[in-house]
């Protein structure tokens, strides 16, 4: 969006033409003021050049594109919450069905995709689906724009075919940690992604392979932590983040996340430790199986993985911040 906004604009236009939509919205987080300026400018230029608006490229088709700014709500990345927000409402998650493709924005059928998908559309059309399909492995075809971040020497976005291992990405592309200390954990797929220990770094970037280890590729974000990380604090943060960003509609997420923070605190403080560990597992089950959307449903991923692979950090003996 910041360096090649036209790729997204083109992708959305293609998608719009494909489904017969004549209005597209880019729902952009307000935390990205730079992207906001660039996208607006790009849309303005594309419209002036006849690539957007009425009768685009003399095709007798119209496609209008508008950037709508979020207002500080992570949950609005969830597709139904995003639609509510675009409608000018509280970003509360909708129960599905109906799926947005049937009844979406303003009650109309709506395609909701992420930037990566729409960004890939133009090159797929240009080079043919076969070419795109040739990349990747198993059922995960094509490429993934990996965002390498955190404590890493060379961070940034790398577009790779599925199948490369996490270790290759972090070590070969990233060059190890920024701090120069050993890597201890890698979080893959955003704040709701699992923390992976060294034993799992050889997992290839493939949806099925990640699902098999109860992790996810998600949006392709990779965050590297060195050996100073306190994984109990990270687990606690996952719950805390969920508590801060939950829309509050469903009970497992609304109350569960807050209780999660409290239970983890009791565990690390050695209060009735064994029972609280059981309770935390129960809570993770409840959130995972009972939540209305992925926010509450996936918050247990980082928590459980930290608890499983970095249990020593929950002993209450490791030095913790906060």
């Amino acid at each position: 969006m910041e360096t090649d906004p036209y790729q997204l604009i083109e992708g959305m236009t293609i998608a719009g033409l494909a489904v017969g939509a004549n209005q597209g919205y880019i729902y952009l987080r307000s935390e990205y003021p730079v992207a906001h300026k660039i996208l607006n400018k790009a849309i303005e230029r594309a419209t002036e050049a006849g690539f957007l608006g009425k009768n685009i490229c003399n095709s007798n088709s119209d496609f209008f594109l508008e950037v709508r700014l979020g207002a500080g709500a992570y949950i609005c990345g969830e597709e139904t919450s995003l639609l509510e927000s675009l409608e000018g409402k509280r970003g509360m998650v909708r129960a599905k069905p109906p799926l947005p493709a049937i009844e979406g924005l303003f009650g109309k059928p709506t395609v909701v995709n992420n930037v990566l998908t729409l960004g890939a559309a133009a090159s797929i059309l240009e080079q043919g689906s076969e070419t795109y399909k040739d990349f990747g492995m198993g059922r995960s075809r094509g490429t993934l724009a990996v965002q390498l971040a955190g404590n890493v020497k060379r961070g940034g976005v790398i577009e790779l075919a599925f199948g490369v291992t996490l270790r290759e990405v972090v070590e070969d592309f990233g060059g190890g940690t920024y701090s120069g200390r050993p890597i201890r954990a890698i979080q893959m797929g955003g704040p709701l992604g699992a923390f992976l220990p060294a034993s799992q770094w050889d997992t290839p970037l493939d949806y099925e392979a990640f699902a098999a280890i109860k992790a996810m590729i998600g949006h392709g974000g990779i965050v590297v932590f060195d050996d100073t990380v306190d994984m109990a604090a990270q687990a606690r943060f996952a719950m805390e983040f969920c508590a801060v960003e939950s829309c509050g509609k469903c009970t497992p997420c609304r109350i569960g996340a807050t209780r999660g923070v409290e239970v983890i605190d009791r565990i690390v403080n050695n209060q009735d430790r064994d029972n609280n560990l059981i309770l935390l597992t129960d809570l993770c089950d409840t959130m995972e199986l009972g939540s209305l959307c992925a926010m509450g449903g996936m918050t247990p991923f980082p928590v459980r993985s930290a608890l499983t692979y970095f249990a020593e950090d929950f002993s209450g003996e490791s030095p913790r911040e906060n």
Binding site: A95, L289, G290
Partner: peptide, 26 residues
């Protein structure tokens, strides 16, 4: 109208993953 927030009414449906809410599932 059904809302799907309390998550008490979850059920199991043959052939479906997880525990759908019985209020929002037709």
């Amino acid at each position: 109208k059904s809302f799907g927030s309390c998550r008490i009414c979850l059920v199991e449906i043959e052939g479906r993953r997880g525990f759908p809410a019985s209020c929002t599932t037709t």
